[in-house]
Each structure stands twice: as structure tokens, then as C-alpha cells.
Amino acid sequence: MPAVLRSPTTWTLTGFREPFRFVHQSMRDHAYAWVLGADASKASGIPLAGEVVQRWLGELHRRATGGGQPLAEWATADNLEIPDFKYELPRGRQSNPARPGVPAHRFPTHGHR
């Protein structure tokens, strides 16, 4: 029997929420994570995933160390309890060997005397 095409369904908040609540209450070993596409989210003012990760890492870092240790040194698999975690600075923000912990993009490497 061929599938019947239906127009998109409009869900109420309760209708959307109930399946998640059921899984949360009855299957404690399951978890959810929302991943939004960069094209839609950035244009809507929602931070990109990498920006959110940087924010979360910064918050965790401040709580754990009070900022006394550079984030790049603190953010390890052991400290975060995330197997195989490797901290990487966002693109364009690689460390400057002359000033550890300071993004390289703040210091031009050419065109200055």
C-alpha cells in the first residue's frame, strides 16, 4: 500500500515535550543534545556550536580554577572527564609563542616594523 502524504503537522508545546519527558523518566541512560545548523542559527542570533563550547569551557574553567591556570592547559580529558577530549582554540585564534595564551590574530606577523 502506498504511503499517504500528509501536510506538515503543527505540534503544541506539550505534544512536542511529552516524548522527551517519557524517555527522560523511563530510560535514564538516554540523553538528548540539540545541534543547530550554523546557517539558520547564526543568522538568528544563536551562537555557533564552537562559540557555545568556548563559553561553557570558560565557565567550567573559572569555576574550577578561578582563572589561575590557562584554559588551554586546564581543558584536558582528565579534568573534564571526557575520554579523548582535545582542546583546540577556535580557528584564527592559535596561540602566539611570544605570548602564550594570547590569540595569534591579535599580533600581526607581517607588515609591521
Score class of each variant (00 low, 15 high):
10 T>I: 15
6 R>S: 13
67 G>R: 06
71 L>S: 12
51 E>H: 13
109 T>C: 01
2 P>Y: 08
17 R>P: 00
96 N>I: 01
70 P>H: 05
96 N>P: 00
65 T>K: 04
80 L>W: 01
86 K>R: 15
20 F>D: 05
67 G>P: 04
95 S>P: 02
79 N>G: 03
15 G>L: 02
61 H>E: 05
19 P>T: 04
111 G>L: 00
77 A>H: 05
93 R>F: 04
43 A>T: 10
62 R>A: 15
101 G>A: 10
77 A>P: 05
3 A>S: 11
62 R>M: 15
91 R>A: 14
112 H>A: 11
47 P>W: 03
101 G>Y: 03
87 Y>I: 08
109 T>I: 05
21 R>K: 13
28 R>W: 00
21 R>S: 13
88 E>H: 11
108 P>I: 06
103 P>D: 06
44 S>E: 06
68 G>Y: 01
4 V>P: 03
58 G>C: 14
70 P>C: 07
16 F>K: 00
23 V>Q: 08
11 W>V: 04
100 P>H: 05
66 G>S: 10
16 F>N: 01
2 P>M: 11
84 D>G: 04
98 A>D: 15
73 E>N: 14
50 G>C: 10
104 A>Y: 00
18 E>I: 12
10 T>K: 13
98 A>N: 11
110 H>W: 07
79 N>S: 03
13 L>F: 10
40 A>N: 05
77 A>G: 12
52 V>I: 14
35 V>D: 03
15 G>P: 01
69 Q>G: 00
55 R>V: 12
78 D>C: 02
23 V>K: 04
13 L>W: 02
61 H>Y: 06
59 E>R: 12
28 R>D: 02
84 D>T: 08
17 R>N: 09
95 S>N: 07
107 F>N: 09
29 D>E: 13
30 H>I: 12
46 I>M: 08
95 S>Q: 06
73 E>G: 01
72 A>D: 08
64 A>N: 03
109 T>G: 05
96 N>G: 02
62 R>H: 13
73 E>P: 01
82 I>S: 05
12 T>A: 12
